[in-house]
Nucleic acid binder design. Structure first.
Length: 600
RNA sequence: CGGGGUGUAGCGCAGCUUGGUAGCGCGUUUGGUUCGGGACCAAAAGGUCGGAGGUUCAAAUCCUCUCACCCCGACCA
């Protein structure tokens, strides 16, 4: 493949648009890959289009190898399709909607579980037709509350989504088998794309266990925090990361009092940081008490209103820690939501000033305490009345015997993990943190969609069985941006060869010189014959401009055709990654040299 | 959705406080000199100042409304 700069559209600029902040947004804009058309909506110019095609080609090859078949579903979906799963409600404003001339409403697909389920429902009836894996590469729409960082979070983006269908979880053809195959395929995809990435355990799906993994491109500018155990290799995102065994100083709830409990007037200061400053107490010596309301019991329905279970669930963590709702759910057995302030006040909670003392003498509250908040020593906490806090809080003295009643008080890991926490997989090891950009996510859906939409097959005993599903996504356009976030320098983008728009840039110093042009054409033909994609910079520009642009668009190898090298029958070879001047190689050897440089 | 901010030439910005013929840099076009890391000289093209309404002899500038976009937060398969 040979293209000429002068015949295509690569509008590079010296300055980036004022609204570009992240490296990928700035560089993709400046290098002429993308242009913003509206909030979270971008043109993909020829260079971007080539890179996107290379990424999706790799994705297609790996999906096909994993046994999936490509199809293409509509982007525009009748809103009625969402009736059974209620996702039009769950998605809320995130769902783009359009109205046609008859007034019928359609959604622009944010994912495609519903249409794929609908399709399969109408196409298969027997377990003999399973397992089945289908995928598509398609434009998705999400009306993000706040699009940002260029292609990293936008409203229209390109995604590969795959869905698998099974009669069983275990065994041949079961969900687990395909999930594992997809896991390997994803590793292959991102490895082949030349990206440095981490696979993390993510919030588990309805089946439980490690039923969900995220593929994160490691980049300092990433939105997500990743926690890793350097010893065991365990990695997880903040929502999911477990924390290893923690020692509770002085034994849970039994530390000695540090002094008389005394009340402090803290007017208008509900925040931990503000109160801490005011009372001259560090946040790690304060107790943070959050009030939740149980919504639904795990593994069954029926709310607190139904009678059984606690009416309130309160979570106590150290002031410098954050409560993790998922962990509260696991520890309590209840799906929870932050208690509505009005209701909580009516039930006696001084929101903003709640203390663990509140539980004494009550039987309608389940209290979860994080180990780091259960020790002895000095504690400050709320005073259970507005505008007041207390000092020298002591668990045993203030709360009393109910602490030992497991019906009402539980010690549990209920907070987000942070750097330095003990690893859950290796004794003595400490968790480290890094930043990442989520580019892939695989998870086990179970029967959520098939049950809601009535997708079932007859099994070998002629019994109707809900089809078990898996779901596997890759952000294709996001992967392109993530690669730039990870691979760039002060001069521009540095593409991994596998997803670079071209493999080689032939920079013609004198596009008017017949000998130069001839040498470039011969060279380009050799390169193309070796299977490499070539861009010839045939513009009548000054050398400085050409070199700057070459660095900016980040083609892995630049071959410069100029008088000096040509005089000795050679061409200047320079890898984008290398600093310095480059070296002269013989014209006849340049193609081999370039091909060799594409490995790795 | 809460807080903050910006809309003036393809891009980056000044002008607005104190109303009086719309400017600068980059880029673009033409001519010339240059020619291995974003050249120089000369000339030129290009804007209903986001939109609507109002005040005024006169509005980019003052007032009201509106739209769009950005940042922080909330939210985020």
């Amino acid at each position: 493949m040979i293209h000429r700069w002068g015949s295509t559209l690569i509008p590079t600029t010296r300055e980036a648009p004022a609204d570009a902040e992240s490296p990928s947004h700035i560089l993709l804009s400046r290098a002429g890959f993308i242009r913003k058309l509206g909030s979270g909506i971008y043109d993909y110019l020829p260079l971007a289009c080539r890179t996107l095609r290379k990424v999706s080609q790799i994705v297609r090859e790996e999906m096909d190898a994993a046994g999936a078949s490509e199809l293409l579903l509509p982007a525009m979906l009748p809103i009625e399709l969402y009736k059974d799963t209620r996702r039009d409600v769950d998605y809320g404003d995130l769902l783009f909607k359009v109205t046609d001339r008859k007034g019928a409403v359609s959604a622009l697909g944010p994912t495609h579980e519903e249409p794929i389920t609908e399709l399969v429902k109408g196409s298969i009836q027997s377990y003999k037709q399973l397992p089945l894996s289908l995928y598509q590469v398609q434009t998705k729409y999400r009306d993000e509350a706040r699009p940002r960082s260029g292609l990293l979070r936008c409203r229209e983006f390109i995604m590969k989504d795959a869905y698998s269908f099974h009669v069983s979880v275990e065994g041949a053809g079961g969900l687990n088998e395909v999930y594992d195959a997809m896991y390997r395929a994803y590793n292959n995809v991102f490895t082949r794309c030349g990206l440095d990435f981490t696979v993390v355990e993510a919030e588990s799906g309805p089946i439980g266990g490690s039923a969900s993994h995220e593929f994160m491109v490691n980049a300092a500018s990433g939105e997500d925090t990743i926690l890793k155990c350097p010893v065991s290799g365990y990695a997880a995102n903040v929502e999911k990361c477990e924390i290893g065994e923690r020692m509770v100083e002085g034994g849970a709830f039994n530390g000695a009092a540090t002094g008389e409990l005394s009340e402090v007037h803290t007017p208008g200061l509900p925040g931990i940081d503000e109160v801490g400053k005011f009372m001259k107490v560090k946040p790690d010596r304060m107790l943070k008490t959050i009030v939740f309301r149980p919504v639904e019991s795990v593994g069954g329905s029926g709310g607190a209103a139904a009678g059984s279970g606690p009416k309130w669930i309160i979570a106590v963590v150290r002031g410098d820690h954050d409560v993790n709702e998922g962990k509260v759910k696991t520890a309590s057995g209840w799906k929870v939501e932050l208690a509505p302030e009005k209701d909580a006040r009516a039930a006696g909670f001084a929101i903003g000033y709640v203390s663990p003392k509140i539980i004494a003498g009550r039987t309608d509250i389940l209290m979860l305490v994080d180990p780091d908040a259960a020790g002895g020593g000095f504690w400050a906490s709320g005073a259970d009345k507005a505008d007041h806090h207390v000092k020298h809080f002591n668990w045993r003295r203030e709360v009393g015997a109910i602490l030992d009643d497991s019906r009402y008080v539980k010690l549990a890991d209920i907070r987000n993990a942070i750097e330095g926490d003990p690893s859950p997989r290796a004794a003595g090891a400490k968790l480290t943190t890094g930043r990442g950009i989520e580019v892939g996510h695989i998870f086990k859906l179970g029967t959520k969609y098939s049950d809601a939409m009535g997708l079932s097959v007859l099994d070998d005993k002629q019994q109707k069985r809900s089809v078990i599903m898996g779901c596997y996504g890759i952000g294709v356009s996001r992967t392109m941006a993530a690669s730039v976030e990870q691979n760039h320098d002060e001069n521009g983008i540095i593409w991994p060869a596998a997803i670079a728009p071209y493999h080689v840039l032939v920079t013609l110093m004198k596009p008017d010189d017949a000998a130069h042009v001839q040498a470039a054409n011969k060279l380009a033909a050799d390169l193309a014959a070796a299977g490499l994609d070539v861009l010839i910079d045939d513009r009548d520009e000054r050398p400085g401009v050409k070199f700057k642009d070459a660095d900016l668009i980040g083609i892995p190898v630049r071959l410069t055709i100029g008088d000096k090298a040509l005089a000795e029958g050679g061409v200047e070879f320079k890898a984008r990654r290398d600093t310095g001047k480059g070296e002269v190689v013989k014209l006849g050897e340049a193609a081999d040299r370039c091909a060799a440089a594409m490995g790795g």
